[in-house]
Nucleic acid binder design. Structure first.
Lengths: 162, 162
DNA sequence: TGATTTGTATCAAAATAAGTTACAAAATTG
DNA sequence: CAATTTTGTAACTTATTTTGATACAAATCA
């Protein structure tokens, strides 16, 4: 009777290529923690076991994280006995923006899970608009995070000490 | 032999109080979509079925979302036959910062899942530091999002139309 | 050579997000 | 006022994402 018309159905195919990257959630926090630990150890290499004990997680979780930080050239690792990881640059030369980029798949909010109805004028165009906004917000977050160096984080951690 | 000392263990109890809030991920995107739909309908109330058809989801998902937007005084709903939802203010008076606040539990990155080791000088203090940074980043995101009004989103959606 | 440590694959578990069904309460319509 | 429609919510299921654990090869050192 007075029922509003639903839009026509659209069939959409997705081909999902799953690269098994490490998940991304509290990883930024963990990464900052890990790098702060490495900084506190100076030139000396740290083992994943020791870092894991501070972060309170499994050494493998730390090693996966270090893998990403390594790819971003923030740390240097060495295998074998007496192996371990140390910072690749000094704490003043690393900022939180670098870390965010290194670990995040990098979006503040997610776009629609399912594609909206393409037969609706709004549904057809909203995704592109949201995508544009998303990119801008992420850029803003990156810039803001870049204002903090790892050195400044270390100083804040030290001040908090009682 | 030369194994670095692990920090002592700390037992931490969690009491998780689960308020069944709607989850928070692509909800901001959905919320913007929903409000754009309502705006396009002007004074006239829209039904959750119709909005759901555009977003390509279940009407209940939309109603849950509308509940949050209602609490934030962004929309007005009416039950019963000939019921539905309309905007509570005009699109120029709603900005994306308002919407973000309304739907998000509101953090760009998560703090540690498990509390870090309190016997480690870094573990003991890193959370507070990250929390402070998190708050500042969220503030920045809110401010940036506030630069977009719903009206401006509508205009962008209209421009994308072919 | 033997011990140690990273790197990575694979599996398991937990947490989170999204979707569905069901139904009471509210409001309109005839 | 009875029938119909629509929101509001609870309860449940399913899917996806995130985290944690085990296992082991390759690298490195003493």
């Amino acid at each position: 009777m007075n029922s509003q018309p639903a839009f026509g159905l659209t069939t959409i195919s997705f081909v999902t290529i799953l690269v098994t990257v490490m998940a991304a959630n509290s990883q930024f926090s963990m990464a900052v923690h890990v790098l702060t630990m490495l900084a506190s150890s100076g030139e000396e290499k740290m083992k994943s076991d020791c870092v894991a004990a501070s972060v309170n997680t499994n050494p493998v979780v730390i090693r996966r994280l270090l893998g990403q930080l390594n790819q971003a050239s923030l740390v240097i690792s060495q295998t074998g006995a007496a192996g371990g990881t140390r910072l690749a640059k000094c704490p003043k030369e690393i900022n939180l923006g670098d870390i965010y980029k290194a670990v995040e798949c990098g979006e503040v909010f997610a776009l629609h899970a399912k594609s909206p109805n393409q037969d609706c004028p709004v549904g057809k165009n909203i995704e592109a608009v949201l995508c544009k906004i998303q990119k801008e917000i992420d850029k803003t977050v990156g810039e803001k995070l870049s204002q903090y160096t790892l050195q400044s984080v270390i100083e804040m951690v030290e001040q908090g000490r009682d």
